[in-house]
Design a protein around this nucleic acid. Structure first.
Lengths: 136, 136
DNA sequence: ATGCACCCTGTAGCAACTACAGGGTCAAGA
DNA sequence: TCTTGACCCTGTAGTTGCTACAGGGTGCAT
């Protein structure tokens, strides 16, 4: 299949597919006589893996390691588990951090009573950390 | 005060202060005869405002609008409230999204039973969206 | 006079794309 | 046959919000 079809089949931008090839995340496909990229099912599967992993928030380097692992079926699975677990921990950290942030923002937004900027509680709160309930 | 002192006073990297000046977020300070930047209290307050807003996740452009607003004390406060509310909504979206992601990752990580990559449930799950409980 | 901490400018790098500019290819319709 | 339009190619530069140099100048203490 051509790049446009692969793009539609995987929901990936064409430019992104070429980018993944350039950084070595996807193998170089064969070319037609017109120098068009020509992909097969293994390419589609690999790109699906990459996109799915990106959707789950894995970095390109993490995905590279996971792909290396899946290319080498005899290797121990524990590294994949380690990468995924570490990522999970990062996501949990991020959620905790955003939750604090949300609480602070809720407090700040709730202070607005209308009026002019000179008396704006939102602007005041942004300029003075002492209004905050928690460290961030 | 010199840039190093301002850096320590606000917990901002020196390079970041110069960057903010370059993009017009902070006004150009006076210079000493040796061409050193020389800051006063208004600069410190403005930088504190910027850092605090960044810590709360506002973008540079949002901060620019908020600063414009606070520079013009007669203006209506509602724009500040609008910016903050929109940002709060974005943070809430992000939390919801990350929570879905966390659940999916938890499911994936939980499937690992050790063994070799060929049978790795983590790698399998990443390659096949059908294993997922929700869209993402 | 020599070391050291500090300051300056300008440019390039990071992640993970995205968006052109400027060209080539190919099949269908007039 | 010619043309139109959809598709493809390469290469480079832009995005956000910094951070990290390289290569130099300044100021103060010893």
């Amino acid at each position: 299949m051509k790049i446009g079809e692969l793009s539609r089949a995987t929901g990936t931008n064409i430019e992104t597919i070429r980018y993944y090839e350039r950084i070595g995340l996807l193998p170089k496909p064969h070319r037609t006589v017109a120098n068009y990229r020509s992909y097969g099912d293994p390419h589609r599967a690999r790109l699906t893996f990459v996109r799915h992993s990106r959707d789950l928030g894995f970095t390109i380097e993490e995905i590279r390691s996971l792909l290396d692992l899946s290319d080498d079926p005899g290797r121990d699975c524990s590294e994949a588990d380690r990468i995924a677990s570490r990522h999970l921990a990062q996501v949990e950290d991020k959620i905790a951090q955003l939750t604090l942030l949300r609480d602070e923002l809720t407090r700040i937004v709730g202070r607005c009573r209308g009026g002019v900027a000179a008396e704006c509680r939102v602007i005041e709160a942004l300029g003075d950390h002492r209004h905050c309930a928690s460290a961030h």
